[in-house]
Amino acid sequence: MSAPSAPSTHSATASYVRRLGDNALILSQRLSEWCGKGPALEEDMALTNVALDLIGQARLWLSYAAELEGTGRTEDQLAFLRDAHQFHNLLLVEQPNGNYANTLVRQFFFDVGHYFQLNALSQSTNPRIAEIAQKSLKEVTYHVRRSSDLIVRLGDGTELSHRMLQQAVDHLWMYTGEMFSGDAIDVAVATDGTGVAPESLREQWMQHVAEILQAGTLQMPAADAWMQSGGKQGRHSEHLGYLLAEMQFLQRAYPGAKW
């Protein structure tokens, strides 16, 4: 029916849904590292709120992915017992928090892509995917509004905040391309309408990002700049291993521990 290398539709959907869950899970873990360390009480609460939104979304995606796999693995096992090469999140979300500008720009780049992705997925031909996307979209609509507002204010803020934001934009830019490059799994799920082709989101993303960066008096890096890739295929930066070591410590040290 199809070429031997092409994934079957069912396993492609499982992989696709797991990727969505991995993005939310890893970014949530990153954001929760800020808890109690935010630059102001209001920011601290906002970041942890976003982290909680994302962990909720990760649970919905990963529990559905576990169902689709049908091997008896649970969402907890997917979160806590996989090694780095078995995670298929975007490289962008595993990048370290750095300073507040790095965290904000990472969030902004992801939120905008996430918004357009969920917006498309809320029309998915797979009702479960459509449901999760619609629920998540409500939260992400706020995330993108908040991170866009902050980029404008800090970009157009003091000389120092402008410089730090510009540095973060330049540094993280190479991780944005991966959001818009599809592979065999993306093609498989886009073909039957369960997923969305990443390439189709690029123009909307570029347009919103350009608009906000301009409002924040920030320079947008070249659209055709060289881009990092590999996260979706399990090839990660050196940062993910450390993140997982911390996140998974309890389950690794005390297998099956519950509280």
Partner: peptide, 15 residues
């Protein structure tokens, strides 16, 4: 605390 009215609304929503 917030730098302007729009961010104050955002922050109020979160807090």
């Amino acid at each position: 605390h917030a730098p302007d009215a729009e961010m104050a609304i955002n922050n109020a929503r979160d807090v």
